[in-house]
């Protein structure tokens, strides 16, 4: 039987996040009392509630059939990398450099596409970005890569 793995894992992750947050908050912040709650009260309560809900999601799913989800690891990694690169490159490569590189990375998971297509797309999106954000919205951003 195919188990409902996405829900099992999803529920377990939520439970772990909840327990982790509750433990961390319980150790580091004052709980206070019900009448005078401290900064730790809400995070601990919510963390415990979350872990309870997480288990309630995970356990029934373990004995229940479900359709497996399509996990697309390549798109996941490359899109996240594109976002990350944009954030890190913006101060150094400027709006033009960061947009160009980001589009190049982001287009990698697109199927059946050549490098010429990626290059042209990156150039056009960079152009639109500069038009909208630099000229249109006047966002104060470095435009070109910093040479020094």
């Amino acid at each position: 039987m195919q188990r409902d793995w996405p829900e099992v894992w999803g529920g377990l992750i939520l439970a772990i996040v909840g327990i982790g947050a509750a433990l961390y908050a319980g150790q580091n912040y004052d709980l206070g009392t019900l009448r005078q709650m401290g900064p730790g009260f809400f995070p601990v309560a919510m963390g415990l509630a979350l872990s309870g809900f997480g288990l309630f999601i995970a356990l029934p799913a373990f004995w229940r059939g479900g359709e497996g989800a399509q996990f697309d690891g390549i798109s996941l990694v490359l899109v996240l990398a594109a976002v990350l690169v944009f954030g890190l490159a913006l101060p150094r490569l400027g709006l033009v450099g960061a947009s160009f590189v980001t589009v190049l990375i982001a287009t990698l998971p697109a199927q059946r596409r050549g490098w010429l297509w990626r290059g042209v797309l990156a150039l056009s999106i960079t152009l639109v970005t500069v038009l909208v954000f630099h000229l249109g919205l006047r966002m104060t951003l470095p435009l070109w890569p910093r040479l020094s």
């Binding site: 944009f86 954030g87 980001t102 982001a106 999106i125 970005t129 966002m139």
Partner: peptide, 10 residues
């Protein structure tokens, strides 16, 4: 979608 990514970052 590549444009969406750049736009949402900005």
């Amino acid at each position: 979608y590549p444009a969406i990514i750049v736009f949402l970052c900005l």
